[in-house]
Design a protein around this nucleic acid. Structure first.
Lengths: 234, 234
DNA sequence: GGCTCGTAGTGGTCCGACCACCTTGCTGGT
DNA sequence: ACCAGCAAGGTGGTCGGACCACTACGAGCC
């Protein structure tokens, strides 16, 4: 049926990428499964090993495949975390107005996630959130504050019960992204305000009040968003 | 200053990818700018052309670079559309519970985008929306309906004024993603319901009522979401 | 002056060789 | 019989060179 008479569109590497994606989409390749060797795959698709390697490399950076040196090539679990790792690249390379747009998206998703978390969070998860909140308030090292800040929001996103959303928020809070924005933000003595906002979020979670949680999270991200907007304006 | 003494971590290709990303992040490579040739780049980074090509291919699929056969390699405009093209891959390869999570995210973003659009849409944009709405109701060809359905939502997302959000929604409505879900959904005589929902969205936009628009959009996506959730359950 | 066509330079493809690493199974001892 | 250690085969990773396909630009012609 599907013989290998090349349809002659695009580069051979691009075609190879599509073929492998199709194989996974059709279920012929399951998550975690091991693929044939680069050499065999090249023969099967009728292309050179070089071109096949480029296709594999492309699918690797997309989080679809995983190459283990000396062992073989495997399909990832195709979970949100695997596939959305590249989302961080977007955040890292965005500048100016695009950063504001990303923060607007984060505000929307983070407020919803926090609201969901207020309704679903378990005592254990809440304890974890409190741990990071306390650690954040107990130090003055910006590096450590940032780390606990990230963990604080990550824990909340996880409690919302949507792994895909958590993965996107993770990308929107990636280390370099936050570092770039917060460097300037925190210099204006925003520490106190940040602590108040985090406390408000925690209060809403502890009270299991979704609407209060949504408002607190939206205000928290919105503060940074407005600050950044002002930085770009005049 | 920064000599090329290899830090010896990861594969040389991975290192090359990071170096180029860093160059763009630091502003040493501007959007639209032409890069040196593959051969020159390979020499500069002290690696073979093969490895350099893999790095370039990886950055190409990420939407960061663009290779023009016979001309050269260029940095893309680094706009939302360029970088978020890969988001469609996520939607295409997701299955089962993950599809529901993606629809939940789409519901959140689409409802917000529609609300924003209700406040910001121009008469011209509204006319465009109406055109697709009418075309959608004037045919029975599922293929054509789907196309106008996509355009309908795309126009609204554009009117919301956040290009990044529009690009994400575009990925969440990618052709294969919609086709897979809607195939089953529409078979259950959901056409009439869909038309009513689209009409409600349009009514809210024309009335410039953000809250009504938010509710209508959330209900629209929510219907599909609930249907899909039911499909997976028992 | 405008058009055509050749040519230099670019990315695209292929090949073959070697290296670094992991896996496996055999070997040798206890 | 069991296990530690070693050896070989297989795998992805890297390299260099060659050739092809396409684009861009300028010399030459009309």
């Amino acid at each position: 049926m599907d013989d290998e008479t090349a349809p002659q569109k695009g580069t051979v590497t691009q075609r190879a990428i599509e073929r492998i994606k199709a194989m996974i989409g059709e279920g012929r390749l399951e998550p975690g499964q091991r693929l044939p060797t680069e050499r065999d795959l090249a023969v099967q698709l009728g292309i050179s090993r070089s071109s096949m390697r480029e296709a594999i490399r492309a699918l690797t950076v997309l989080g679809v495949l995983e190459a283990r040196h000396g062992s073989g090539i495997y399909v990832t679990q195709l979970e949100a975390g695997d596939l959305l790792e590249t989302f961080g690249v977007v955040a890292d390379l965005s500048r100016g107005p695009q950063l504001v747009e990303l923060l607007e998206i984060r505000r929307i998703l983070e407020s919803t996630a926090t609201a969901l978390a207020a309704a679903r969070i378990t005592p254990d998860q809440l304890a974890e959130v409190e741990k990071h909140l306390a650690a954040m308030n107990a130090t003055d090292d910006p590096e450590e504050i940032l780390a606990h800040d990230l963990a604080f929001h990550r824990e909340i996103a996880a409690a919302a019960g949507n792994e895909t959303m958590a993965a996107i928020l993770e990308g929107l809070s990636s280390r370099t992204f936050r570092a770039r924005v917060w460097r300037g933000y925190q210099e204006e003595g925003a520490f106190a305000r940040t602590r108040r906002e985090h406390a408000a979020i925690h209060r809403a979670l502890a009270a299991r009040d979704p609407e209060a949680a949504r408002a607190a999270a939206a205000a928290h991200v919105g503060e940074v968003e407005q600050w950044l907007r002002a930085q770009l304006g005049p």
